[in-house]
Design a protein around this nucleic acid. Structure first.
Lengths: 153, 153
DNA sequence: TATTGTTATACTCTATAACTATA
DNA sequence: TATAGTTATAGAGTATAACAATA
């Protein structure tokens, strides 16, 4: 009981420390590849999602429309993605990986393997399941809260 | 076994999603207070650490010396922290919260209570303990790896 | 020689607001 | 009216390298 009060700040800081370690490690590993950790996540979303609009992309990695555009401009400049007009909605643009983008993604996946191994090596498979489940619940509550909590509405 | 292979990317992305939800929620909650989520973490480190040098601060929140300086300049401008020459090491500077900084920190703590409640509300106290433990193990392995993995050394 | 901090510089991500074009 | 995307703009965090002063 006292413990849970004392712990009131442990969880947020522990979550931040773990993510920061992951982020920095990934950033360092990808530096030579000319791709940032966040760009990697965007590329992953494209691999999973196939062809997406910018808005769908923004929703998937829960980011901003103009942030997404800034990232896409960089990735397009590097030849990793390409954009085209949407066939049925001419306001929208479709985004997809180029073949160079798919190749780069396979490289990045290899380069990042050590980090994933380290993470999973720190726990049993069962613990990994538990961790993933808890993280999803945290993400779920917090994003749900934000929507219903819109002060300015 | 197939599951753990399939999961190879679940953990990093789940960690990112949870942290992002926390970060965005905190950012939104603190916007009116004129303090960012990262600045809040720095202020927390100062509360726990008392008077620290910039280097100690950089180590605590595992950040860069020049990043720390940039943040401190902003916080000093806002009157939340103050810096002074270190008594025994005249290269170093000491950093501490001003009384305005302590007051602001108490406000921020209050404002952030809802987010902490949401996080802890998504799980039992026992699960929270497990989550914190697993997150620390993840952070531990990854930071350890980075040190021993210095390619350029 | 190594370390603390500063400076200059640059890049990425983030976000808001005003805007165009389309649904 | 609402939505997709662009543009301009700004701020914050990140990081590197060169530098001064001190240990």
């Amino acid at each position: 009981m006292d413990e849970s009060i004392e712990q009131q700040r442990e969880l947020p800081l522990a979550l931040r420390a773990a993510y920061m370690a992951l982020h920095r490690g990934t950033e360092a590993a990808f530096a030579k590849q000319g791709v940032t950790a966040d760009q990697f996540v965007l590329l992953l979303a494209l691999r999973d999602g196939g062809t997406l609009t910018q808005r769908e992309l923004a929703d998937r990695i829960s980011s901003d429309a103009s942030t997404i555009r800034a990232m896409l401009v960089l990735l397009e400049r590097g030849g990793l993605i390409q954009r085209a007009s949407h066939p049925s909605d001419s306001r929208a643009k479709t985004v997809e990986l180029t073949s160079a983008g798919k190749k780069k993604l396979r490289q990045l996946w290899k380069v990042g393997q050590k980090i994933r191994d380290d993470m999973y090596g720190a726990m049993s498979p069962r613990e990994a399941d538990v961790l993933i489940d808890l993280l999803r619940r945290v993400a779920g509550t917090l994003s749900k809260e934000r929507k219903s909590d819109c002060v300015s509405c």
